[in-house]
Design a protein around this nucleic acid. Structure first.
Lengths: 111, 111
DNA sequence: CCTAGCTATTCGGTGTTGCTATGTACCGGT
DNA sequence: ACCGGTACATAGCAACACCGAATAGCTAGG
């Protein structure tokens, strides 16, 4: 989409990726492809890789290098305990924000 | 709240402020106070003013200087036609994102 | 008077984030 | 040998929210 989406993804994209990893381990290329499939058509590959490096450095995920038949080895990420904790906080923050926004949207209708 | 909220506000705070202005004209100090009241306890004053300057420069709002009995004159902002259009786009973008996140949250529960 | 405190706005510097563009590398098919 | 798909990495950029401080008008208490 546009610039609005770009700005809105700041702060949520991280949560999105961690949420994906909470379901199953995955690697960067896979996550990017999946996101594009879900309609995030213009998410750059580099963005996901940088994000994964970040969450790894913060100790929210564990990494395992797995050989691939079709190219260079994959770095498979999985959410660890700290990551799950962080993801919980993310959902709390998100819920708060979503509630306020829903209220605002309702309130705006009658004008 | 914390750093997560700070990052999540990028892109949404603008929509929030425009949504407020879609209901009624308002000035910076007032908006900041209202937000704090709604639970956005740590939104910096400077942030709102900078945001208002930005949306004004983009022609999304009209401004009127109104004298105050209690201090320096207020800059009262109101949403114009372009702003309303932009706000519509914002809601579209927000809805898209909120839907994906809600899906992800549902999916994550069974793990 | 004058200091403190509330109202109201502005601005420079900082850190985080996503995007762009590019580069590296492994593999299979032609 | 070449190309396309797979897979990861990184340097430079722009946007945004935060922090801290400054400016300015008004009122009330000492």
């Amino acid at each position: 989409m546009g610039k609005q989406m770009t700005e809105m993804l700041k702060g949520t994209l991280e949560g999105i990726v961690l949420a994906i990893l909470s379901g199953r381990p995955a690697y960067g290329y896979e996550i990017t492809a999946w996101l594009r499939d879900q309609g995030f058509s213009d998410i750059a590959e580099g963005t996901i890789y940088a994000l994964l490096v970040r969450v790894e450095r913060r100790g929210l995920v564990d990494v395992e290098k797995v050989p691939s038949e079709k190219g260079p080895p994959r770095k498979v990420y999985s959410l660890n305990a700290r990551g799950r904790e962080y993801l919980d906080e993310f959902w709390t923050t998100w819920s708060f924000l979503a509630e306020r926004l829903e209220q605002l949207r309702e309130g705006g209708k009658q004008s």
